[in-house]
Simulated assay, not measured.
Amino acid sequence: MATLEGVPATIFQTLLGGPFLTAYLLYLGAGASVVGFVLAITTFVNIAQIFIAFMIQKLRSRKWTLIIFVSLHRLLWSATGLIPFLFPKEWWVPIFIIVYFSAFMANAVGGMIWTSLISDIVPAAVRGRYFGIRNTFLNALGGILLFIGGRILDDYPGSVAFTILFSVAGFFAICNIGTFFLYPDVPFERSVENRFLPMMKRPLHDGPFMKSTIFLAGWLFLQTLIVPLYSYVMLDLLHINYESVSLLTVIQTVSMMASFYIWGNLNVKFSNKTLLFWTLPLIAASSLTWGLLAILPMMLVLVVIHILLGVGVGGFNQLAFNFIIGDTPKSERPMFIAMYSAITGLTSFLGPLLGGQIYRVMNDWPTWIQQYGFQTAVGVIMLLVALTWGRRILKET
């Protein structure tokens, strides 16, 4: 049921997100700083999940609340495709930001409820392996769609391509809403606390959880300084065509897909935190590899970058998800999820926001710094952080 629901969700999110979101923003007239800001919105709204975690304790039905907020997210995001047809060009970017922000505020509520519900549906004993299989299947689908979407952007100029992408995505958004009706409305084990502050203090007083969360938040700040802007660098600075960028994203997705099953099986033998540590050097290496653009063919280097990024980020996302739903007390899980999402959401918001501003400032700097120097410098910092603080906080012996 959850895998079936993921099929239209993957189609919808792939065609409107990733490199296609960056391409659409550039089409609307956005610059680097605006692209960074928009990419940061999706994580910034997660701060609201602390209040959402308290409010869902009052819900009679998680399923029907989930359907309402998922519907708002899917429909509002799809509606951004209508902006060029309804408004003057000077309003395109501001209106996109308003509608996109509203969509992801709804998604913050829906995401919180979905995580809470799915953690009760999938038994803990098979959770790591199940999500590995589910993610592998859905990312295979995403990889195919990335390639098709890239061809559409290259073959059909300007508004025609985005009309096609948004039309297909809008259809599958409706299909996705329908699949949520298949979810069971399983009983909800509520918190033992019924007041906001005592409930919020539960995760704050859990030392190992907070140490890991704060470290991962800092890591995500470094990661999001550069990774969300990879598409911007390739499209706007390296002048690669849409099809090539899509193909590179497919390679990243295939690498991620292959890694999900491996990480899922390793999760049977090793803890979430230990495996999270192992993902960090891989992500750092993907940033360091940008420096090879100075001496090796561009496409070869970009392929290696995206393979490393796929394996590293795929493992990181899957294991972080398992960490917050598997290493936390069931009755308090919504607030633990919310605290993790809020703290990491704040740093993941600041990362691309600052990254976009840095690229704007670097506009008059030497070309090599813009194309690969900044990413390489951040990669060095990430590797040092992984081998020092990361090893101390996450590595379990």
Rank of each mutant, 00 (worst) to 15 (best):
L117F: 08
G110Q: 09
L145P: 01
R62Q: 10
W114L: 10
V93H: 00
A103F: 05
S61Y: 06
A106Y: 01
N46L: 14
P84L: 11
F137Y: 12
I133A: 06
I56D: 02
T136W: 00
A40S: 09
Q57F: 11
I83F: 14
T65R: 13
T80W: 12
G143Q: 01
A108L: 13
W77Y: 15
L72H: 03
L86V: 07
V122A: 10
L141C: 00
L82D: 03
M55A: 14
L146C: 00
G110L: 05
S61P: 00
I113W: 13
M55V: 03
G132F: 01
S119L: 02
G81M: 07
F69H: 07
R60H: 07
S61W: 02
A140R: 06
W91L: 15
I47H: 14
A53E: 04
R60F: 01
F104L: 10
L145T: 00
T43G: 10
N139H: 15
L72C: 12
G143I: 01
Q57D: 04
L141T: 00
A124Q: 14
N46P: 03
T42S: 15
L138N: 06
I83N: 05
L39G: 00
V126F: 13
F131D: 06
I121K: 14
I41K: 15
I56H: 06
L76K: 05
T42K: 15
I68Y: 11
A53Y: 03
I56G: 10
T115W: 12
F54Q: 09
S71K: 11
W77M: 13
L117E: 02
I50F: 12
M112H: 08
F54M: 09
G110W: 14
E90P: 08
N135C: 06
G128P: 07
D120R: 14
S71V: 01
K63C: 04
M105N: 11
L76H: 09
G128N: 05
A124D: 05
I56Q: 12
A124T: 04
I67R: 11
